[in-house]
Amino acid sequence: MNFPVIDPQPIWISLQLAGVTVLILLTLATPLAWWLAHTRCRFRVVVEAVVALPLVLPPTVLGFYMLLLLGPHGWVGGPVQTLTGSSLAFSFTGLVFASTLYSMPFVVQPLHGAFESAGKIPMETAQSLGASRLDAFFSVISPLARRGYLTATVLGFAHTLGEFGVVLMVGGNIPGKTKVISIEIYDRVEVLEYAQAHILSAGLLLFSFLILVTVYSINRRLPVQMV
């Protein structure tokens, strides 16, 4: 029996994609989740619903619209094409863009929950001790929301790692550019290379399981309440 040859490139692209997506999402989701947790604006529910849409939509729906949006004639893809001369569709940047939207709820929702459960008191207390709002956010609120940040990071990362439909439609399965691990597994199965499919699948399964176990056990140990 031949030793199965694993192409490391899809794994590397998947990790890069998940890493970049999570970093972008944490930056965007923090102010968004803070706003959702504290605003009394009546459009709040609309924003909440939009953020949650990727949870219920088939990835192909999202992928289809992303393709239109990012393509050479799309609202985003068009100007980018004019500026840089290359299309966002079927590119790594396009994948990052699509993944950011697709994984948004997995990052926003834990942060929203964390900010909401922290309540107004920590902010008020920090301000009464002379902290500005921004200072209070970094010195008190974000440490209190550690659980939320950990959950958001891990879920965002793991979910981006596991996506299939959107990356297939937006990325187009270009080896070395947009072919990620989940698509590679699909391809191996298509050509009946079950051994390779097994290694990749089991690896992904084990990896996902391990980080979830780690997160849940760390979360149990972090203090969150003001006393």
């Binding site: 902290a131 440490p143 209190l144 203090p223 003001m226």
Partner: peptide, 18 residues
Amino acid sequence: PHKRKTALVFQESRLFPH
């Protein structure tokens, strides 16, 4: 509030847990 030279103590201590 943060520019007034007042300090507050509440019924709950409101210490920062972290």
